[in-house]
């Protein structure tokens, strides 16, 4: 994760507000996601930063962030990968057969955790929406996007929304 170090410099009123891309980059998003995977999916579970092809039945989950920056954090992967992820989240508490709600709920929870930690990188208060699962959100262009492989299966995480300087709150 990009470490935000105190340089001793202070922002003055007439300084330009930081841009979202100053705060959120691919390395930061991957680091947040890896932390979530290690804690929730399994400590030996790794996200490899390599692009892969998403299957036709890809499903997305996303959460909105509202505050100095307005945008959406989106996780997209194949349905069978989403099912495996939900099973790993539940571990020994997983039922023999996962239903659709379990699968969507698991992917939604990962979006919620990754989105919450993306929000934490932003300055000032922001609000986090409830996770939504579906084909794809209607959001802005990618601010940044990481293409990853989990157990050889393709997964993307994108931070989408308004580009440019953050709003003063």
């Amino acid at each position: 994760m990009t470490e935000l170090q105190d340089t001793g410099l202070r922002r003055r009123a007439d300084d330009a507000a930081p841009s979202i891309t100053d705060l959120i980059d691919e390395e930061t998003v991957q680091s947040i996601a890896q932390e979530a995977w290690s804690a929730l999916v399994g400590e030996d579970e790794f996200l490899v930063p390599l692009p892969g092809d998403l299957p036709e039945d890809a499903v997305s989950s996303w959460v909105d962030v509202r505050g100095p920056w307005n945008g959406t954090v989106v996780i997209t992967t194949g349905r069978s990968t989403a099912e495996q992820l939900s099973r790993e989240l539940l571990k020994e508490h997983a039922p023999p057969v996962l239903d659709e709600e379990d699968i969507e709920d698991g992917l939604g929870e990962l979006a919620n955790v990754v989105g919450g930690n993306v929000k934490a990188v932003l300055p000032g208060p922001s609000a986090l929406g409830l996770p939504v699962v579906g084909d794809a959100p209607v959001a802005g262009p990618d601010t940044c996007r990481v293409d990853l492989l989990w157990r050889g299966q393709s997964l993307t995480i994108s931070v989408q929304g308004t580009a440019g300087a953050l709003l003063d709150q």
């Binding site: 929730l40 989240l89 539940l90 571990k91 709920d105 698991g106 929870e109």
Partner: peptide, 13 residues
């Protein structure tokens, strides 16, 4: 928790 998966995880622990 509104997430059934998260309820099961926490309940399991």
């Amino acid at each position: 928790d509104d997430s059934r998966v998260m309820r099961r995880i926490v309940s399991g622990i």
